[in-house]
Write a protein that binds this DNA or RNA. Structure first.
Length: 207
DNA sequence: AAGACACGAAGTCCTATGCG
DNA sequence: CGCATAGGACTTCGTGTCTT
């Protein structure tokens, strides 16, 4: 741990998970959350761009990109009212950024007196990494679980793992060093479940 | 030694292609 | 020529290999 101040909540993007039955604790590091929602109004991008200093026009004036340094994330705002938030490190900060952005747009568009609610807010993707305290024999793992795994060393050095379970959307990329990258999860709780379920499998192919 | 590339997920819009 | 659809780019990250 560094000397930096670490907030108590999961705002740092780190989720500690205890793995049963061995009691090993690993940390899930969330690196990126992609979420999207809609503000039920047409947005005048030019007006928003002129009223704030932290946005830039992109793609031939079709959408704005706003850089939130505090949360180290990007927000894409489309004139249709659709907004995409990328780069947040926790569900909480993603929602917070979504709310503040909606409020900012609402204020600039001169609709502060109206009740404008965020519509269809959802997290579409969470990308996280987990480091297991041992090396993994991924070739052995792919042979043992040919249905779930996809391993083509000439194509990519990591093993691609899919649970083929409708309740779990996440896909894992497993490396020999014990590093596991999780993509496609839609909530922090799903991330925890993924790690808990993959651990017994990885343990069998421990080096 | 440093940088580029590969891969996965999601949503959006732009560009290109094909058909009537 | 105009419309509809398909595909590509963009964003985030880690990791190992390959190229410069």
């Amino acid at each position: 741990m560094s000397d930096e101040q670490i907030p108590k909540s999961s705002d740092t993007g780190v989720i500690p998970v205890e793995l049963q039955p061995d009691g090993i604790v690993v940390e899930i590091q969330i690196n990126n959350i992609v979420s999207n929602y809609q503000i039920p109004m047409h947005i005048d991008l030019r007006k928003v761009a002129l009223s704030t200093c932290d946005v830039i026009y992109e793609r031939a004036n079709t959408h704005l990109v706003r850089h939130k340094k505090k949360y180290n994330c990007f927000i894409k705002i489309f004139n249709s009212g659709k907004v995409v938030v990328m780069g947040c490190r926790s569900e909480k900060s993603a929602l917070l950024v979504a709310r503040t952005t909606a409020r900012m747009v609402q204020k600039i568009m001169g609709k502060s007196d109206q009740v404008i609610r965020i519509r269809n807010y959802k997290i579409s993707n969470i990308m996280a990494t987990v480091k297991f305290p041992f090396n993994i024999h991924i070739e052995k793992m792919s042979r043992k679980y040919p249905v779930n795994s996809q391993y083509e060393p000439e194509l990519f050095i990591g093993l691609l793992w899919n649970f083929h379970d409708p309740s779990i959307k996440g896909v894992l990329r497993i490396h020999t060093t014990g590093s596991v990258t999780v993509t496609g999860a839609v909530s922090e709780s799903e991330l925890v479940e993924i790690v808990q379920r993959i651990y017994p499998v990885i343990k069998q192919s421990k080096m």
